[in-house]
Design a binder for these strands. Structure first.
Lengths: 262, 262
DNA sequence: AACAATCCTTGACCTGAATCAATGCGAGCC
DNA sequence: GGCTCGCATTGATTCAGGTCAAGGATTGTT
């Protein structure tokens, strides 16, 4: 069943790691409210800015490869990235879609724990680990902020485990749409026509399904007038209550707040 | 398919939250090497000890309930705990088995994000959040250590997503056995007869399968002489290479090291 | 506008794991 | 020892979602 190599090689790692350096000022950063820079004073922000470079990756570009030396840590400022892991036979699991404010670059034994590919054009701040480590010592605030981010990600990961382990295809799609809508709102964007920058194949690789099943589930929800499809990259939620009901009611994430560890 | 309420109510939350206070000295703590106390000097450890209470929960006791006020943070010192989330119809997903050194008590909006039940008798250190928060300000080392622990857990969660989203039943069981063996070794215990304190139902709820499928997979691996069953709570690995091969080769976790964030 | 290259949808069919249903077994307890 | 009760195994059957196979719709390019 799952022996087949994923269709169009959605997740195959291409070697097009083209990084475009870019000027940038933290003052105007849209992502600032949700990321590790959040708690910093202007003077501290300047110190952080001094050790980072702001860069761009075009859609389709893979800028982190699982297993490569984990030299850098990334902080997304715009665009959407898929983070994924591959099995040796090509099966792919996307562990998350990252957006402005999310950090990237977890390492295990000095090498990246996953690959990351831009789905849309992406911008990020890039830090070299040794330099960032030095700054951590002087500005423990950053570390605290990152701990909060990591905890939030951990809780999202646990929700995803529930989804992957115990939900039906229909429930997974409903949960996915609600989560995306919610994340958009939290970033100050409209939550209703939900923006889906990724392909059906990506959604499938995220939800532990196949392209065909994702498509069929969308069609089913459309037929029931719970959603309407706006081209390939948009979904309008017509009946939010129904969608929440279908998703399985554990959507406490809808009320998710940013918690610190203690 | 998944509509059925889980068999024996493995994961139903019982109200037997019996906490036995217990005297304890950090000097002799077995868990110290892997948990947040690791980096502390004796003097600092004493300050941490001052704000904690050491307690015991008997097997079967539920000491964290999803949705309840998240007043405390826990630090396991011995025994095994299952951490799980329930869907409204009773479907259960165990998001992790926690052992000595692991921390418990993630919260979202002031309430616990999951439930936790002791599988064996368990001991832990318990901290009240406000007090711990105060100590964080004075001893940022603790925060750093926790960030490392959280990152490690996040990577483990990502591995589990790969397992739940893309692996076959057989691969899940093989991966599970290897992971458990590995964790035992890292805690200075024998890695080979693998100790399985949990029931088949718990394993099923962790791997996104049913009791029956878990049992069948064990039987299959036994028939192939890859493992031998030692009663219900032990498995001897007879052919490690075969098991690694079956697990899907992404078991970099075997070589997992403790990484700090930067 | 025509083309190409993806991506998406739909249909027919198949299969791995779930479900339903006994039966076996072992740890704790008189 | 024998009883019991929860857990584990095994078998028969079903079904959700995967696989295979066309087409149809978008999107980008010249």
């Amino acid at each position: 069943m799952r022996e087949r190599v994923q269709d169009s090689g959605n997740c195959k790692v291409a070697a097009n790691r083209r990084l475009h350096p870019d000027s940038h000022t933290c003052d105007l950063c849209e992502a600032r409210a949700f990321n590790m820079c959040n708690a910093l004073e202007p003077e501290e922000l300047a110190r952080l800015a001094a050790i980072m470079s702001h860069q761009t990756v075009e859609a389709g570009g893979t800028f982190i490869e699982e297993g490569a030396a984990a030299d850098d840590l990334f902080n997304l400022t715009s665009g959407t990235v898929k983070v994924f892991k591959l099995l040796s036979d090509g099966r792919c699991q996307i562990t998350g879609f990252m957006m402005a404010g999310d950090f990237l670059g977890l390492s295990r034994g000095g090498t990246y724990a996953y690959s990351a590919t831009a789905i849309t054009p992406v911008t990020f701040c890039r830090f070299q680990r040794p330099q960032l480590r030095g700054l951590f010592n002087e500005l423990p605030k950053i570390e605290r902020q990152m701990l909060g981010l990591a905890m939030n990600e951990l809780m999202a990961a646990q929700d995803q485990m529930v989804l992957l382990g115990r939900k039906t295809a229909r429930e997974r799609i409903a949960s996915f749409l609600l989560t995306l809508s919610d994340r958009a709102v939290r970033r100050g964007r409209p939550g209703n026509p939900v923006d889906l920058p990724m392909t059906r194949g990506d959604i499938a690789d995220y939800l532990g399904l196949t392209t065909e099943t994702v498509s069929r589930s969308f069609t089913q929800l459309k037929t029931e007038r719970v959603i309407a499809l706006k081209g390939n990259h948009g979904v309008e939620i017509l009946d939010l209550d129904a969608l929440v009901e279908i998703a399985g009611i554990d959507e406490r994430s809808t009320a998710m707040a940013f918690d610190t560890i203690a």
